[in-house]
């Protein structure tokens, strides 16, 4: 029993989960419209985009690296896609090209970090500006219109108040969560972030592991951008500005450690959900919207503090006390 409890307490998403429960209780007291099915579906509508960003950032953070460029990639991929669509390129190819652009950014981030040896914070800060600039330059200042008559239902079609994209999020989340926890490569990601030197000495190709994670992070960001473009049927080069910080906030609230080696997909999703709930209650309770950033900031601090406290308590629990 104690060991089950201890296992639970050392899960990275435990503090986020506690806050989620607390928030649902408190918010339903603040507004009676909060705890309704309709409201939840409304909250979930824009969730896939930010949650996919958060999952990508989390995977990379587990590997011990960091990506600030996801918000810019979020604009670049759909921009590439829409420009190709305007040239009558088939949808599937245009999407593939958009994702390929994201993959190239991921590879460039990995190259700057792992080959040149820049800290990933600096490398991807550079990429944040460069990729954003690229998205604007290739649009020529006036991005082409999103093709109005294109079938978007397979990606963002309405299902009651939900969008089809939520199922893509769930599918991707399950695949990545299983990959992280059940496969040898997943184990290498945790090992690489947990102690890169040890992982390397034990025969893991840490450069390959980190490069893979940079690419996954970038491609998920590109895909998230494509979902948004599909959903709003429009593209602006400035879309996704600031999303990198929201994604990192979601990842950190979800228990991903800046030092690497700790994090989970469930945490990333709960983190993104918490941010969405805050936004939602501010609207429902007609609170001044300028409090949104304050609330997110406070949640980052509280969740990390709570996580640290829970972990310390769990560490003090000796399994030997079971007998």
């Amino acid at each position: 029993m104690r060991s089950v409890l201890k296992n639970l307490m050392t899960r990275p998403e435990v503090s986020a989960l506690a806050m989620l429960v607390l928030m649902v209780v408190v918010f339903s007291l603040i507004s009676d419209r909060f705890l309704t099915l309709n409201n939840f579906m409304i909250v979930l509508q824009p969730m896939p985009e930010i949650a996919l960003l958060a999952i990508g950032v989390t995977v990379l953070m587990i590997a011990g690296e960091f990506d600030l460029s996801v918000g810019s990639v979020f604009a670049l991929s759909p921009m590439v896609m829409v420009l190709l669509l305007a040239q009558d390129v088939p949808v599937s190819l245009a999407i593939a090209a958009g994702l390929l652009a994201a993959l190239l950014v991921g590879l460039a981030n990995a190259g700057m970090t792992l080959k040149i040896g820049l800290p990933s914070f600096i490398a991807t800060l550079g990429a944040l500006f460069m990729v954003r600039s690229l998205a604007i330059v290739i649009s020529g200042g006036f991005p082409p219109a999103f093709p109005r008559d294109m079938d978007t239902s397979w990606l963002v079609g309405r299902i009651d108040l939900l969008r089809a994209s939520i199922f893509y999020l769930l599918g991707i989340a399950v695949i990545i969560a299983v990959w992280l926890r059940k496969t040898d490569f997943g184990s290498w990601i945790f090992a690489t972030g947990g102690n890169t030197q040890a992982a390397r000495d034990m025969g893991i190709n840490t450069t390959m592991v980190k490069t893979t994670c940079f690419c996954i992070c970038s491609v998920l960001a590109g895909f998230a951008g494509i979902i948004l473009a599909f959903r709003i049927k429009a593209i602006v080069p400035s879309m996704g500005t600031g999303f990198e910080l929201q994604a990192i906030a979601a990842a950190v609230i979800g228990g991903a450690a800046l030092a690497g080696g700790i994090g989970s997909v469930a945490g990333a999703i709960i983190g993104a959900l918490l941010i969405a709930f805050i936004e939602n209650i501010i609207i429902l309770a007609r609170i001044d919207a300028n409090w949104f950033k304050f609330a997110v900031g406070a949640m980052i601090v509280i969740s990390v503090a709570l996580n640290t406290w829970i972990r310390r308590t769990a560490e003090r629990m000796r399994l030997g006390d079971d007998q």
Partner: peptide, 12 residues
Amino acid sequence: TIYQYTAMIPEM
């Protein structure tokens, strides 16, 4: 090889 720093991942 057994290294003096033990080559372990503390969290694992």
